[in-house]
Nucleic acid binder design. Structure first.
Lengths: 211, 211, 211, 211
DNA sequence: GATGAATGAGTGTTCATTCAT
DNA sequence: AATGAATGAACACTCATTCAT
């Protein structure tokens, strides 16, 4: 089971698939082309992958799971920290920065895969993955927001509160997407993080004050 | 040419096309379905529209041009204003707010068409229209940024300056997209603008200070 | 609409389809072969027929409808006659014979099509058409049976009655199938009808007596 | 060869195959599914069975052979009896009834397998097995018919004789098929046999008289 | 005795587009 | 201004079968 030959075939298929998905996007990608490029018949592809979608998930699934793992850990840690929060607490951004750096590094390690997920997944089962992450962040940011505002419960949030927090969650996510799609290297991305942090922290204050 | 009959046919085609594009997105939309729904043959469609892409542009082109017109006017006006700018000038946000309201109203007047452009255009020649608008805004924002920073020329901008301005341009655009896609009505969108303004102004200050 | 050209194409497709369905049966028939034989592209086929099943129905639908029409008429007429039935009524078989002859003539007029329906329809939406006809005959034969038995209502039928009537309905249908598939010509079939009538009438008496 | 392991594998394959053939019929049955369900690889299947057809015969072959054996015995016995036949001989139906009961019992013992043969074998080498049995019965019934008619040789049979005897042979077979496919249990089937016997005996008399 | 990988031809179906009329 | 017929390539996917190990 899983000898060198089959691993090789799978690897060739994934490489070839990645290339095709990047070039044409999920929908326009042709399984025939992918197989031809991999030097394999369509039957072989279907031995290893259930269908087109499964192949796509084969390409991006690993990196996606890694990202989810980091975010989950981060959210749990920050939740722990929120419990110790008092109005006088100095906001500690160092942790957030550390996580941001971690995420950026991950994004650039699998740059192609994440770009696939962000811009080429339309038509696949992962086409809404970015929104799903943003929605998850939204839940978390709501907690943060309530704590900072001194709300006892999320039920105290107004419609306007909810809307702006939702926006900020999305924006947070968009920052990483922007870094990934507009920086040539991890190095450059890490250099730009600081300014972006300045921006969103400014934004948070703008919101907290005015609301 | 252009008698009542043909206008009617075109109108039916555009309606039917809009419906299909909304339902399935540009790529998966079927011209056959569009024609069937419009009660017209494919030949008729090809008499009025060069190809699928042309039909798509027929649906969203008008609203898109209106938007471009507003943005252009706004940019030209603000450019005029920038010339009168001195370090002591009180920043006048009223104009910006007025424009934002104008844009929001426009977006909601043709809600379906703009959503088409934003989320369903993949595969068409307009798939990058949002990025193009953002890039245009970027040019403009660079001017604003330089003026506020007291730069004599754009050439004084560092790589970091350019990056953060680019981001802010994109983010500005994203705000409108967010309003369009997350508010049910123009009314609700207009209510949320204020908080978003608080956010991005906070963001600008965060950036200007820290850079 | 429906000019000579298109009619010709449809005709060629139906001829070619009939041939292929006869040779291989519905399931194994290849639309590609059918199109190739008809000198037409697959696209053309799909312009005239919704799918494989529709094509099959295009081949056998007409004859099938004719048969249904005859049966329906026959059933209605016999129902009328039953109302005038008294225990002393001499059973009039002439009408039945006339109908049988009519049916046989029809079957042989479209011999190929009916054979298709009877033996090659597996996999299509018409695969159970013979059973459906038999079930319809069953309803009718139940009426006849009850009248002959002097039952006031079908509810008087025992389980055994129902079973044997069901069998006889099926058998009646099978006679025609047997004639179609074992006689070379209409002429020969008509010659054999008499003996078969002797058989089933004998069968009826055997049943009526013993039950 | 033939140790416990292999027997188990074969058994699992046969079970799984039976299930799939019943569900989808011979043609649409998928060997892949059968293997998956049996928890076995395709290679294993091909070690024990030559091909799809061989597997099908593996499922239904045993019961089929048992049936052939009964029929053969019965035919031989009846042939023996025919030799002692004189015009005055009282027809002894008891033997026939006994055989019929024996057959019904067999059919219901392997109900699934026989239904497979009757209704789901299309595409396999056994698709005509019912007709073959009927044809064999036909040979036998010709003997019976000639004896009863006082013919010295089968050559005295007219075309019409042959036809009606052929029909009766088929019908005899169809009775068993009808019992199998329309009765829920052996018990119920045995209860219905009597009426069916009344029917075909009536049919025979109808034929003998009229010819 | 059995595995797991691979074949390669085949399936029905859909598509945007063209063009003579 | 519009029809209706036709193209032909492409699509994702399934199949029974083979074979080295």
């Amino acid at each position: 089971m899983g000898n060198d030959n089959s691993k090789e075939t799978i690897e060739k298929l994934l490489q070839s698939a990645k290339k095709e998905f990047i070039e044409k996007g999920y929908m326009k990608a042709s399984l025939r082309n992918i197989c031809k490029e991999a030097g394999v018949t369509t039957g072989a592809l279907y031995f290893f992958f259930k269908d087109k979608d499964d192949l796509f998930r084969g390409v991006v699934g690993g990196p996606l799971r890694e990202l989810y793992a980091i975010l989950e850990t981060h959210i749990l840690e920050e939740l722990e920290e929120l419990k110790r929060y008092t109005p006088d607490t100095e906001v500690n951004l160092e942790d957030d920065k550390a996580v941001a750096i971690q995420v950026v590094k991950l994004l650039f390690r699998y740059k192609e895969e994440y770009e696939l997920l962000i811009t080429k997944a339309q038509g696949s089962s992962l086409e809404n993955v970015v929104d799903e992450i943003a929605d998850q962040m939204n839940i978390h940011y709501s907690d943060v927001f309530c704590t900072m505002k001194g709300y006892k419960s999320k039920k105290q949030m107004t419609k306007e509160d909810k809307f702006i927090v939702h926006w900020m969650a999305h924006d947070q996510v968009d920052i990483f997407i922007h870094l990934l799609t507009h920086c040539k290297s991890e190095k450059e991305a890490l250099r730009q993080i600081r300014a972006l942090f300045g921006y969103i922290i400014g934004g948070w204050y703008g919101v907290i004050k005015s609301s």
